[in-house]
Write a protein that binds this DNA or RNA. Structure first.
Length: 304
DNA sequence: TAGCAGGAAAATC
DNA sequence: GATTTTCCTGCT
């Protein structure tokens, strides 16, 4: 199926797909190829038009609009952020970068793998579990695999999971997959809850047993921001922590600031994370997640 | 709450 | 080629 989507709000496909939210997009020639919802979405931006070619009728213009959140007025969103030189420069540089709305299970499964790994490695791990456990299909003569269903990963042998290069993350992914397969997390309900409540759901325990092993506040924030439309979520990873320490010290409470100055290294305890997260969300406002994504992109590109 | 381990691969030296 | 770092969380 082939169609176009006209943009009436700023959008940069390139910045969005390279911003570290998604792990399954590759550029070949002028086209971006992604496996989304079990089919290939092939897409190219030409000014204010998106050209799309898909392998499934389900991936129509409505789907694309929803996936890239094109219904969200980016100018308005960025206008609400509390500006300063640092975030203003990042926004100018990567203007059009948008948060996406990916499928919650895939997002959760992917970010469980993201602990202590860099992006090339995460992409490799995700590709490996898709190839090993996903459903294979063809598009334009090439072979692709869907992101595996939770029930499939829940039933996977630990040794096979480890063989995908997951290391110590293998048992976490299996556990999370089993919880999801057993319906212990109400994904649909998440979007309807206030932000802090939705995060509590992802971090919750039942009968003294953690429901989602390997999911702490950072991963929870990623899931809520990238798949549940919680635009106020502000995931704090090592890159963002460095940006905050360098450019936003006044958002960091004195105790943490003192420890940062003392040992230089940035390690956030659970309590540190929640306090800092709240402080930063209060500063940037209800679309804080957009500020986070622009700052993250800028910090990473600067390094490269 | 603080300290540490965890597995493997990428970055860096 | 060795060492350090890596979009962190769980356990004690």
């Amino acid at each position: 199926m082939e169609f176009t989507v006209s943009l009436d709000s700023p959008f940069s496909l390139e910045h969005t797909l390279k911003s570290g939210q998604l792990f399954r997009w590759r550029k070949r020639g002028e086209w971006w190829y992604g496996v989304v919802s079990g089919s290939v979405l092939k897409i190219q931006q030409d000014g204010d038009t998106l050209r799309c070619i898909t392998g499934s009728d389900r991936l129509d213009s409505g789907f694309v609009t929803n996936y890239f959140k094109l219904d969200e007025d980016l100018e308005h969103v960025l206008g609400t952020l509390t500006k300063d030189e640092v975030v203003t420069r990042a926004i100018e540089k990567y203007y059009g970068l948008r948060l996406v709305r990916q499928e919650t299970w895939e997002c959760l499964g992917s970010f469980v793998l993201a602990t202590n790994a860099n992006i090339p490695r995460i992409e490799k791990m995700v590709a490996a579990i898709c190839a090993r456990y996903g459903t294979r299909f063809e598009f334009e003569g090439d072979s692709y695999s869907s992101f595996p269903a939770p029930g499939v990963l829940a039933g996977a042998a630990m040794a096979d999971l480890r063989a995908c290069g997951l290391g110590y993350r293998a048992p976490f992914l299996k556990h999370v997959a089993a919880s999801v397969a057993d319906g212990k997390i109400d994904f649909d309900g998440l979007a309807a809850l206030p932000f802090e409540d939705s995060r509590k759901v992802l971090l919750k325990e039942l009968l003294g047993e953690k429901v989602l092993l390997g999911v702490g506040p950072k991963v929870a924030d990623c899931v809520l921001l990238y798949s549940c439309g919680k635009d106020e979520a502000f995931p704090i990873d090592v890159w963002i922590a460095r940006v905050l320490a360098k450019s936003y010290p006044r958002l960091i409470d004195s105790s943490l600031r003192a420890r940062l100055a003392r040992d230089g290294k940035i390690k956030l305890s659970y309590g540190d994370y929640l306090r800092l997260s709240q402080s930063v969300r209060k500063h940037f406002g209800r679309y804080a997640g957009y500020a986070q994504q622009y700052l993250y992109m800028d910090a990473r590109e600067r390094e490269a």
